[in-house]
């Protein structure tokens, strides 16, 4: 029993999961059973992959000890640049790859500037938030370019089959989430990410190329944000320059609610997903319960603070419980 309790206290994402179940039950009742109805779940599941992919990227970056505020802007810039490239006659696959390459360059610049000039990534990526948003609007020329009508949406955003619960974007999301979770917990590179964020000096003294590890995480984070933006634009059918505004903070909130530590070293992909699900459930649940939608941000704010306080408390309780050796 004691050991079970300790394991539970060590995993803040499980507390998030418990809260999610409670909220689902409350909103299910308050919405007269609409929340978990097929049509509603279908709608929420169409939105989930877009935000969850951003949250996964942000979580990995936060684990390695850095921060990215530019994801919301990159979310808009990637599909916009892809649309502009498409309109100049480049085929779809090449345009997507070019768009993702632009994201990778942005991630690289974020990381390089942060590490080379030893400035907090909070500042670097705040700058990039404005730069990437501005570029998005400039290249759009003020008018969102039209997307060709023959894009392979069957691969990204169509329902898996006629009347299915999930869109293809959900398959991409699950695949990427599994890969990201495996990267963090099963590979040596995941070990380096955790070591770099957990204690930079120690990782460096053990010969880990900490700067390279961080730059790769910055790039991964930007590419995931860009890919998420692509999914949203393919779903909506038009690259609006304003998409993703405020998403950077929701992604950080999702990561933190899911147990990721701002100081680095701690966090999981599963936690990021739970955090995203919680935010999406509150958003959707408040609307269905006919609560004024302006309370949404209030609820996210309270939840974020509560999550951090609860995590700190759980960590303290966990340390108090000494489990005897089982070997």
């Amino acid at each position: 029993m004691k050991r079970f309790l300790k394991i539970y206290l060590d995993k803040p994402e499980l507390a998030g999961l418990a809260l999610l179940i409670v909220l689902l039950a409350v909103f299910q009742v308050k919405s007269n059973g609409v929340l978990l109805s097929f049509e509603n779940v279908r709608g929420v599941m169409g939105l989930l992959p877009e935000m969850a992919l951003v949250a996964i990227g942000v979580t990995i970056l936060m684990i390695c000890g850095e921060f990215d505020l530019s994801v919301g802007s990159v979310f808009a810039l990637m599909p916009m640049s892809m649309a502009v490239i498409l309109n100049s006659g480049v085929p779809f696959t090449a345009a997507v790859l070019l768009g993702l390459a632009i994201c990778a360059v942005i991630g690289f610049v974020n990381g390089y500037v942060t590490l080379q000039f030893s400035i907090p990534s909070f500042i670097t990526t705040l700058g990039m938030l404005f730069i990437a948003r501005s570029l998005t609007i400039v290249i759009s020329g003020g008018f969102p370019p039209l997307l060709p009508s023959d894009l392979p949406t069957w691969l990204f955003t169509d329902y898996i089959w006629q009347g299915a619960l999930f869109r293809m974007s959900f398959v991409w999301f699950v695949g990427i989430a599994v890969l990201a979770a495996a990267l963090l917990s099963l590979t040596n590179f995941g070990n380096w990410i955790r070591a770099t964020g957990g204690f930079n000096e120690a990782a460096a003294s053990m010969g880990i190329p900490v700067k390279r590890v961080k730059i790769i995480c910055f790039m991964l984070c930007s590419v995931l944000a860009g890919f998420a933006g692509l999914l949203q634009v393919l779903r909506l059918g038009s690259p609006l320059p304003s998409i993703g505004e405020g998403l950077e903070l929701q992604a950080v909130a999702a990561a933190v609610i899911g147990g990721t530590a701002l100081a680095g070293g701690i966090g999981t992909v599963f936690g990021a997903i739970i955090g995203t699900l919680l935010i999406r459930t509150i958003d959707n649940g408040l609307v269905l319960s006919r609560v004024d939608a302006n309370w949404f941000k209030f609820a996210i704010g309270v939840l974020t603070m509560f999550a951090v306080i609860a995590n700190a408390w759980m960590g303290k309780m966990s340390r108090k419980i000494k489990v005897e050796a089982h070997k």
Binding site: E201, A202, A203, S205, M206
Partner: peptide, 12 residues
């Protein structure tokens, strides 16, 4: 080398 600040990562 083992440093005074300790070359271990506490969160791992």
């Amino acid at each position: 080398t083992i440093y005074q600040y300790n070359s271990m990562v506490p969160t791992m």
